[in-house]
């Protein structure tokens, strides 16, 4: 499959409560080449203990498959949590690029960004990406098990 980058610019999308200052974070997730259907992804913020804080983005429209985004589903699967923060599922080799609002309070405060992923008839991955949330633009490669080839964010 060709590497298609689809960009979803989200105008004023933050449905998050405006706790103080917020800024825009751009998330870029590139998937590996794998055989199978398009992947569902949940990109969210947890504290250092892994406790859920915020949903940043959910790829995949059908709520009935959200239970396969295992860790995220335990806390973040209430519709209010991701209202306006969903888009299409992401295919093999494709890149998802989204910009969302994020409160300053979560930056450089020991929080991290995690990604849960699932593909029909294939493995569900809990937190296949775990990356500290800091002010610097950061890039990280995915593990052997997951579908994510690389993930980067910048402000």
């Amino acid at each position: 499959m060709n590497k298609t980058a689809f960009t979803l610019a989200l105008a004023g999308a933050a449905a998050l409560p405006a706790l103080g200052q917020a800024r825009e974070i751009t998330l870029q997730t590139t998937l590996k080449e794998y055989r199978g259907n398009e992947a569902y992804l949940a990109i969210y913020v947890t504290d250092a203990q892994g406790d859920y804080q915020r949903t940043l983005w959910v790829s995949g429209k059908k709520a009935k498959y959200y239970k396969h985004l295992r860790d995220w589903a335990h806390a973040g699967n209430q519709p209010a949590e991701f209202d306006g923060l969903t888009g299409a599922s992401v295919g093999s080799g494709e890149t998802l690029e989204v910009s969302v609002e994020l409160e300053d309070a979560l930056i450089d405060a020991g929080y991290e960004i995690r990604i849960d992923s699932a593909v029909e008839d294939k493995r569900d991955n809990r937190a296949e990406i775990k990356v500290p949330l800091s002010q610097q633009a950061t890039e990280i490669s995915g593990g052997a098990q997951g579908y994510v080839d690389s993930f980067r964010y910048q402000f």
Partner: peptide, 9 residues
């Protein structure tokens, strides 16, 4: 299909 709402964790 009745699968949208799971019991909350």
């Amino acid at each position: 299909d009745g699968q949208e709402s799971e019991p909350s964790y």
